[in-house]
Nucleic acid binder design. Structure first.
Length: 388
DNA sequence: GTCGTTACGGTTGAT
DNA sequence: AGATCAACCGTAACG
């Protein structure tokens, strides 16, 4: 974040720009997506589907090197690196909240005060609130919200929420209340539950991370993989899997071998989530299977942006509850209870992986290297184990 | 060959 | 309704 500094002059243009063969460029309709150098499909500016993200983490935990993951999934190594780094840092595989802007004047504190004023005097006028904000020193003349802004706050944030403000004074977004940020993680479904998770700013290496982390954690479902599992269920019910999720993804994606459920049975009772959840996101057509045992999944996604949200949506993010990095709880320690690893794949994999890597924080080879446990950790997630 | 980093072009969503 | 802004995204490429 530190501003985008331009350090070297490169010819290449940003992301997709360069790819020579832009084979898949947005074609007539939905064909969003461009093809990267590895042959994977991606949508510029949009996050990879959760399934792929999940897969990246999963593979890393199985001990697959990032470079191999990159090739297998056809995702740029920079992206793999970024996702794994984030996962290690925050425990979440979810992308950060995209879009939106920070409140300029309607800060959490201001909103809180407005709410207080309104609760204290339901008949108070917006201009009176404005005066009180000034009088109480909550704002100064330069940053006091306009009457119209106050009205909007009353209408959108306070009115509807009735109780809990969207943001409480503290930055921590309440778990469920609709938060401004992160909706992304939520499901697009009608009732937007908000996912407050807040925009955790997840900057890839950023300091912000902390905040990030915090949120999710507190949220049981939020970014945890577990949730994902839950999601799956949810999705299935809703039919999201069927492509509904926004319907964005073509149903076929489901078949994606790698990601999908093929391998999983819905049965993963475990945490409930599972790949399905992930799948939700994913619906990408997948070419051939192929790769190795680990699941191979190929290319990615051509997904309509709109979906994305849905995808990520879900109740929460995927933060593995017991994630090692977790500052708070006992991370690795137990990955919690629910290890949902579905199939034995992971489990075994983990096992296998364990020995060697524990070590320092991360396993050398793969950043994701959380202990195998982690996987479970991801736990919740059932990771689609590869279709292997 | 691997991997961390980062400029770039892009999308999104609150203001 | 539309513009602006700031956040994030993934890729490509540097080191």
């Amino acid at each position: 974040m530190p501003g985008r500094r331009r350090r070297r002059l490169r010819l290449r243009s940003g992301g997709p720009a360069a790819p020579p063969p832009r084979a898949a460029r947005r074609s007539p309709e939905h064909t969003y997506g461009e093809v990267n150098q590895l042959g994977g499909v991606f949508v510029n500016g949009r996050p990879l589907p959760n399934a792929i993200r999940l897969r990246i983490v999963e593979l890393a935990q199985l001990g697959i090197r990032p470079c191999d993951i990159s090739r297998q999934l056809r995702v740029s190594h920079g992206c793999v690196s970024k996702i794994l780094a984030r996962y290690n840092e925050t425990g979440s595989i979810l992308p950060g909240a995209i879009g939106g802007s920070k409140p300029r004047v309607t800060t959490p504190n201001v909103v809180k005060h407005i709410r207080d004023y309104k609760q204290g005097d339901p008949g108070i006028f917006a201009w009176e609130i404005r005066d009180r904000l000034l009088a109480d020193g909550v704002c100064d003349k330069y940053n006091v919200p306009s009457v119209s802004s106050i009205s909007r706050i009353l209408r959108n944030k306070i009115g509807s929420l009735s109780q809990p403000g969207p943001y409480d004074g503290s930055k921590q977004p309440p778990p469920q209340p609709a938060l401004p940020y992160n909706h992304i993680y939520q499901y697009p479904y009608p009732s937007p539950m908000a996912s407050p998770a807040a925009k955790m700013g997840s900057h890839p290496g950023a300091p912000v991370a902390a905040a990030h982390v915090s949120l999710p954690r507190s949220w049981p479902s939020a970014h945890s993989v577990t949730n994902i599992l839950g999601i799956r269920t949810f999705m299935e019910q809703t039919g999201a899997l069927a492509g509904t999720e926004g319907s964005a993804y073509p149903p076929k994606m489901e078949d994606w071998p790698g990601v999908n459920r093929t391998a999983f049975t819905p049965a993963q009772p475990v945490n409930g989530i599972d790949k399905a959840a992930a799948d939700g996101d994913i619906k990408y057509p997948q070419p051939a299977p192929g790769l190795s045992s680990v699941g191979s999944f190929l290319p990615a996604c051509a997904y309509p942006p709109s979906n994305q949200h849905g995808v990520y949506g879900g109740p929460g993010g995927y933060i593995p509850p017991g994630h090692p990095w977790q500052p708070q709880g006992s991370p690795l320690g137990h990955h919690g209870p629910g290890v949902a690893v579905h199939g034995g794949d992971l489990a075994s994999a983990m096992a296998f992986k364990q020995p060697g890597r524990e070590a320092t924080d991360r396993k050398p080879a793969s950043p994701a290297g959380k202990s195998p446990d982690t996987l479970n950790t991801i736990h919740g997630l059932s990771i689609p184990a590869s279709s292997s």
